[in-house]
């Protein structure tokens, strides 16, 4: 029997639930020569701000057991280049769901960038990053209290017609209260989780490995924690969730969907295996057969 891998995010059909997570797949174009992007359900583009940013000093990467720390610091060419060049170029080679990931340092910046993304024809979903651990006075600061998360959500929703997903930080006491605040403020969906604030020390140099001292920890090691948060949030909210955090295999994807995710983002795994997403998408039908699943839609949040 032909397996139905498609899922529906706020009325947008994804051919499968596999979506490379923001920051782990560039603007899609970087990999267009190496694989057929059209096997991907969606692509979440690299986090974008109003102005171009170089990001943090190097080293930006530190290896860990079962994962890695990154402190890229939102290097990006700015929103005008995103909507004027990156998205139109990607649209020429990719027919799936394009998700713009927007970051900011003020409410005004979030609003201005989201409005521009909303006006860009090629973009299907706007993912608002209120959880970047690698920039000061912005990013995660908005995502660590229910009040400020709701404030960003309402401000962005007021200028967008396209579905708006809020990307949540796991570095909080109660992620469910923040998720609910976003939902109450009008969010169309939620992406969770972003990276966990982490650190490594080079014991020979007696200095932090990362130039910015701390960074976001992600990779296979965080999967159980991310899954737990997805489960809690998906069962507390009605809006769809994109599950993210440590996903590395087709089995992980099914697990995330059973926990309540409608789509599943793959992040750090792309950095160790650039072909992770197409491989996971290709492995899903056989796994569904093994588990007697005919349509992935049927198992969303069934646990």
């Amino acid at each position: 029997m032909v397996k139905d891998l498609s899922v529906d995010l706020c009325g947008i059909r994804l051919k499968n639930p596999v979506v490379p997570a923001s920051g782990t797949f560039g603007f899609g174009l970087e990999l267009a020569g190496d694989m057929d992007l059209n096997v991907l359900g969606g692509i979440s583009l690299k986090g974008t701000t109003r102005e171009a940013r170089y990001g943090n000093p190097t080293p930006r990467i530190a290896e860990c057991e079962g994962g890695m720390i990154n402190s890229v610091g939102l290097q990006n060419p700015g929103i005008d280049v995103l909507v004027g060049e990156k998205v139109p170029s990607l649209r020429k080679v990719y027919d799936g769901c394009i998700i713009a990931n927007i970051s900011g340092f003020s409410l005004d910046e979030y609003k201005e960038c989201c409005a521009k993304a909303d006006a860009c024809e090629g973009i299907d979903i706007i993912e608002v990053n209120i959880s970047c651990p690698n920039v000061h006075n912005g990013g995660m600061a908005f995502g660590t209290s229910a009040a400020s998360a709701a404030e960003v959500t309402a401000a962005v929703k007021a200028v967008c017609r396209k579905p708006v997903f809020l990307k949540l930080s796991p570095n909080v006491t109660d992620i469910v209260s923040i998720a609910r605040a976003c939902e109450d403020a009008g969010a169309d969906g939620l992406t969770l989780v972003n990276t966990f604030l982490g650190m490594r020390i080079d014991i020979v140099r007696r200095k932090p490995v990362i130039a910015n001292k701390m960074g976001g920890f992600s990779g296979r090691a965080i999967f159980p924690i991310a899954l737990r948060m997805v489960y809690q949030v998906a069962h507390a909210c009605k809006i769809p969730v994109m599950g993210c955090g440590g996903v590395a295999t087709a089995r992980d994807v099914v697990e995330m969907i059973m926990a309540g995710a409608t789509a599943v983002q793959v992040g750090a795994e792309n950095l160790r295996n650039p072909f992770a997403c197409p491989e996971i998408a290709a492995a899903l039908p056989a796994l569904m057969d093994e588990l007697n699943i005919n349509a992935l839609k049927d198992i969303i949040g069934t646990v």
Binding site: T24, G26, E30, G55, P59, I61, V72
Partner: peptide
């Protein structure tokens, strides 16, 4: 430079050059 993906899409190994930011790996 310490690299992440090694293939130009994670921007972990960027340096500043006279022509703007460049990825060491790509």
């Amino acid at each position: 430079e310490r690299m992440g993906c090694g293939a130009g899409f994670c921007y972990g190994c960027s340096i500043q050059t006279k022509n703007g930011p460049r990825r060491v790996c790509k």
